[in-house]
Design a protein around this nucleic acid. Sequence first.
DNA 1: TCTAAACCTTACACCAAGGATAAAGTCAAC
DNA 2: GTTGACTTTATCCTTGGTGTAAGGTTTAGA
Lengths: 276, 276
Amino acid sequence: MEKLTIGKMARINGITEQTLRLYDKINLIQPCEVNPDTGYRYYHIKQCAQLDMIQYMKALGMNLTQIRECFENQNIEQFKEVLHMQKHNIDQQMEDLKHAAKTIDRAIEGYKRYEVAPREETPVFEYQKARRIFCYDTKINAYSYGMEYYEQVLRALKKNYVLHHFPMSYFCNVGSIIRHDYFMRRDLMATEVFVFIDDEFKTSDSVEIIPEGMYVCLYCDGFNREEEGLKKLMDYIFTHKYKVVGDCISEILVELPTSSNYDRKAFFKLQVMIKR
Amino acid sequence: MEKLTIGKMARINGITEQTLRLYDKINLIQPCEVNPDTGYRYYHIKQCAQLDMIQYMKALGMNLTQIRECFENQNIEQFKEVLHMQKHNIDQQMEDLKHAAKTIDRAIEGYKRYEVAPREETPVFEYQKARRIFCYDTKINAYSYGMEYYEQVLRALKKNYVLHHFPMSYFCNVGSIIRHDYFMRRDLMATEVFVFIDDEFKTSDSVEIIPEGMYVCLYCDGFNREEEGLKKLMDYIFTHKYKVVGDCISEILVELPTSSNYDRKAFFKLQVMIKR
DNA sequence: TCTAAACCTTACACCAAGGATAAAGTCAAC
DNA sequence: GTTGACTTTATCCTTGGTGTAAGGTTTAGA
């Protein structure tokens, strides 16, 4: 059985020559023979076993250093340990991916709703499932000081939010709450902001549930329409004497990438639950 | 509202100053003001909106170039397209992770069985579930030409295997088949090698099922014990006049990382299904 | 007023796991 | 002997930053 050149070795193993040279360089797998004059590398076909093992370990998510250590130590216990670690690792990555997938779904859903939403700022009825939010009270009324304060409020929320180890991917679905009492008094007072989170997170001091039920909703386009929209919503509710249950939520449905000027471009859904 | 220094901007957004400098350099987000004398960057708090968006898009799996393009084009359609692409992307990654997880489980399981397996090369009875294999006929008897040929046979299998887009992570759980007729004639003739694959793959010309049932199994340690083990298995079966159903499988239970010499270190499980 | 801390700047090297390319040397077949 | 396929080393590029060095400026406290 003749020796294999680097090209042949690469070909029969479905990898590139560069990869083999790299593996040689980092002492992962060395050719069984090197011509001292030409520097040509020659491999023995039995070395394919090592390559198989490397590819297998790579598929398990190990990096080249870990693989080399495993080879060097010849330690089964270490390999088993790595296996368990990788298992844990993969579970974590899976969780992250699930979050990302949910976020994307949420974004796509948001865009769909954005496209079909009524543009004329008239109240509509919608039955909505319960949703979970991570809430933060900033003690500052978001409606009284303009966007600069709103951003500061958001920063405070964000800080708390990452402190609670929520995935960053949620941080596009934010909103603010006008508590029931203020709403009934037609007072635009919202000191609390929130992020929508997944149902799997337990309720705690910061996590609450927006209940399932029939909502009166009003869509509006842009921050500068938000206050006006809220007033319209209040007008509608009080004119028709609907019984308001719970708080009023102002939710950012979609936020559009913007860079030209610094203003956020957002599409809002204002909503409050009623009982007939 | 005063301008924010890079340090403050970084702090309130939970990122590092270096990251902000990088984003500036690649035109992702630029400070609203730069002191021409000192080169100091100053940010406006409203620019946090852009940072939020960047972090959100990153969480969706987009890279910085894609994010910049989205900002530049101001194109919602493109963003939506990216969303769908990312969704697809994530699904793919999820699949890969699932495969990796299964492979690790299989490896851990294999090591467990390896540790409890009888070392004395005596036949044992085991009831085994159905398993699925990707099979390849090399037309060369793996038992007649030594390890070099075996490696070549494996390379051919591997080539076919990646051609069928099976994940590389399976390629540690290989084996060979002695078809029923040869086994009954006590002929060590195995031209077919295979890889265990997941149940989700459809049966086709190359994918077959090893049926559920009661198997006589014999464990042996190392390639040099395989033939002897097969003979012992045959002896046992024919002495006790068990009725053999189907083919005899030689499965590599675990393969140990090795580098000192080129020989594979593998632990085998030889098995054949019987009917009482 | 002195000093130290806390800022800030640019510039460079480094990570993982190769990919891409160039310039030059080698091998084998015809 | 020539050609074409193959191989070598060497260098730079990728992604998304992290870390360090060397130096400049501002601020607070004693």
